[in-house]
Simulated assay, not measured.
Amino acid sequence: MKKILIILLFKIAIGCVFAQNKTITGRIISDSFDPLSEVSLMTQDSVQIGKTNKNGFFEIEIPLSEKNILFATASVEPTTIQLLNDCTTVEVILFLSGSYDFMLVKKVNRIKKQKFRQLQKKHREAFEKGIFETEQPCYERNFIPFFEES
């Protein structure tokens, strides 16, 4: 009986050590400062871990080892961010997806990169308007071109 109790306590202790999670809260808005509802939040393995409410807010619980979150829904460009270690509040601006008919790939990439460069300014503006709680994002986000040229 003692052996079973010791083994059970050992398994519980191991489970507590390796199953540590952290809670992430935040808000998702469009580049025109409108809240985005029903945005899916997914891990790198495409497992859905949450959705935003009608005002763009969310609260998720993820393992400490998880560093990437993908945001996707209809009418916006899918976006992946890399969380920094002490990041618990994630506020993201997503770009509305559009049609780039009859445009050269270089021009589309130039337009997208121009919008991407404005993200820091837009984030600060959302903070000043009271939409975001943080002045600076606590994650990294990389520019992904529309189409890679060979």
Rank of each mutant, 00 (worst) to 15 (best):
K2A: 04
K3C: 07
L5N: 02
K11N: 10
K11H: 04
I14A: 02
G15W: 13
A19M: 11
Q20H: 08
N21W: 01
I24S: 01
R27Q: 05
I29T: 05
S30A: 13
L36P: 13
S37W: 12
E38G: 07
E38T: 14
S40A: 13
S40K: 10
Q44T: 05
V47H: 04
Q48E: 14
I49N: 03
G50D: 07
K51T: 14
N53G: 06
K54V: 09
I60Q: 03
E61T: 14
E61Y: 00
E61W: 04
P63C: 04
E66G: 00
K67T: 00
I69R: 02
A74M: 07
S75Y: 09
S75R: 10
Q82M: 11
L83M: 09
L83C: 02
T88L: 10
V90A: 01
I93P: 11
L94N: 06
F95L: 14
S99G: 06
L104D: 08
K106R: 04
K112I: 14
K112G: 05
K113Q: 12
K113E: 11
Q114E: 12
F116L: 09
K122M: 15
H123W: 12
A126E: 13
F127C: 00
K129C: 03
R141A: 00
N142C: 03
N142Q: 06
P145Y: 04
E148Q: 03
